[in-house]
Design a protein around this nucleic acid. Structure first.
Lengths: 340, 340
DNA sequence: TATCAACACGAAACCGTTTTCGTAATAATT
DNA sequence: AATTATTACGAAAACGGTTTCGTGTTGATA
């Protein structure tokens, strides 16, 4: 057991002052070559590393980023996290993750916890409950305290800060357009409650596409599912009661569930019913047939968010940049579950 | 913009000493009720919160746990992480995650980075490269410095510390036994390179089961795949060239890949060939037919690891507990991809 | 009236750094 | 020889807390 060595230890052993040791290790011109060599050798031998906590206290920056995500088991958030971690690490930052579990309270508690010095900035995607309650005072307070925040994916216009979003409406429109070009007539949308900005945007894109192609909107063709319940019965009834030849689902799970039920009901995918989902995750790649889907480029999204945050943190004292919203362009990946 | 308030600020405003403020906020009996009330009210009004960094420096404990995992996109690690985060959070700890990306170098760098004061202890699963090179000096050094470590899943006997593992051999044996009871005669194993302790243990379980039931081992029925390559060709050839009626795969992806190729080759799952995988992830639950699999209880594993670590950290000064190895009992989940 | 608790608070050390500033000792200049 | 510049280092403050110990002021006791 050899505990960590400090500047003080080195100073005592070598009979110099702490300041001298500190300067010597930073190769200061103030210190003679002899002394520097001696100190460096000693430090190297005992594997001296400066204490991060002491540095943080002194510099008033921790080189830690707080990441708050609603759920890590969702593939999309996992990939975004991957992107954040990768970029942050390259830039010498560490990442502290908290999972809000879609709960507003957890989101608030975790952020307040971390805000007391543990991190230099936040990257987060709003919890479902936060979006539902439209409650953003915790974010406002942190911004007020000068802590930079980057929102991604689940964002809100109530808060002014850097953001990274997907062109949800546009890509949903493109997906529906793709159905229409392939000859689909009755196109369904399977979505979540509309307080999610992303679902709402995808719905808008869906409606836009119908309008552009002079399709009449049939509200019966929009199925709203909750993300935390057993939806199998609802889906089954939906496809039994409605004649449908194409479905756009706002996430991968819904898409896979629909495909599985559609197949059980005796329809052929994609000949009877085409399916396109969101998130190019593992499910989409390994299903039969493989799922056509909207790739959200989560990793890029994460990197972009991290870059936005780190840039702002590192320029904070120098210039006052206006807030940016970066738009990630989704890609429609055509695979076996849709025609052509 | 109202920056964070400190003890010093309160002391100045209220014309008392810093010590008085500190004691008042901790409700010390040393301070008169009047003064305490005044200080508490002021602190509350300005939303005073002690600075975590200063506390860490003083207390020599950060209440942060470092988690190093090889890969976060793998469902198993994600769930373990979930368990760690959950338990740690309940106990007031934050989690700093680094992804080693199966690289020994990254593992070493990240751990050294965090070890300089940022965390109180580590939870990790060894990277592939670390297991391949059998290089554990970084772990030994940290343990030497008095930093507690808990290894999970990918562990090694070279290091003495707390560990959490799955009863891999046992459950693999049980899975193969299940095949045999259902009448399978030619049982294959699809696995990874054997320097992974987990794959090796599953292989041992597979061999044990064969031996117990007086089956001859046919090395041709063991297919070794690399985890980062395109394996489709290898799998296809394997099932074309070998008569097989059951397959145990050491992970979910291999299982799904095998199932998909087996079906393409015109075999019926499970009638012609039964399949059991490892990891009860999203893939297993949504495949057609649903995949029989070994549930590894990742979340429980994570919680157990976090509990082991936190217990050790909090008792560190008091007693010297011997190291423990907790074994998580996997569960065989029988679904559509295997008979009976 | 001198002595002594009890009370209420402040000074200062400490955690491990960095950094500014002051100052001996030596060397260079006039 | 007196002054100045340079070199090489140390003292101390600062970051934001906690905690030990000391101390001035009361009120009670002998």
């Amino acid at each position: 057991m050899k505990p960590k060595i400090t500047l003080k230890d080195i100073a005592r052993e070598l009979d110099v002052s702490i300041s001298t040791v500190s300067k010597a290790l930073k190769n200061s011109a103030e210190i003679s070559k002899d002394t520097k060599d001696k100190i460096k050798a000693f430090a190297k031998f005992y594997n001296y590393r400066p204490n991060n906590i002491a540095l943080s206290l002194k510099n008033k920056r921790t080189k830690n980023i707080g990441v708050i995500i609603p759920d890590i088991v969702h593939h999309f958030f996992t990939t975004v996290f991957r992107g954040i971690e990768k970029y942050a690490n390259e830039k010498g930052y560490n990442v502290i993750v908290c999972i809000s579990d879609e709960s507003n309270e957890k989101e608030v508690i975790n952020m307040e916890m971390l805000a007391n010095g543990s991190i230099d900035g936040f990257i987060l995607s709003l919890s479902a409950e936060t979006q539902l309650k439209n409650e953003y005072t915790h974010l406002k307070e942190l911004l007020d305290q000068g802590i930079p925040i980057v929102l991604f994916d689940r964002v809100t216009s109530e808060i002014e800060c850097d953001k990274v979003v997907l062109n949800d409406a546009e890509i949903a429109c493109e997906a529906v357009g793709h159905f229409i070009k392939a000859g689909s007539k009755r196109i369904a949308l399977v979505t979540t409650e509309k307080y999610f900005n992303v679902s709402e945007n995808r719905r808008i894109g869906y409606l836009d596409a119908l309008k552009v192609h002079n399709f009449k909107v049939d509200e019966n063709l929009i199925l709203t599912l909750s993300h935390d319940m057993e939806n199998d019965m609802l889906i089954t009834e939906f496809f039994q009661n409605n004649k449908v030849d194409a479905v756009l689902c706002v996430n991968e799970i819904f898409a896979i569930q629909c495909m599985s039920i559609i197949q059980e009901l005796g329809f052929n995918v994609p000949n009877d019913i085409s399916i396109i989902g969101f998130t190019d995750g593992i499910l989409s790649r390994f299903s039969v047939p493989r799922l056509s889907t909207v790739a959200q480029h989560g990793e890029l999204m994460g990197e972009t968010a991290a870059k936005l945050l780190i840039d702002r943190m590192e320029w904070l004292d120098e210039v006052e940049e206006p807030f940016k919203t970066e738009v990630i362009n989704a890609t429609l990946i055509k695979r076996g579950s849709s025609i052509n």
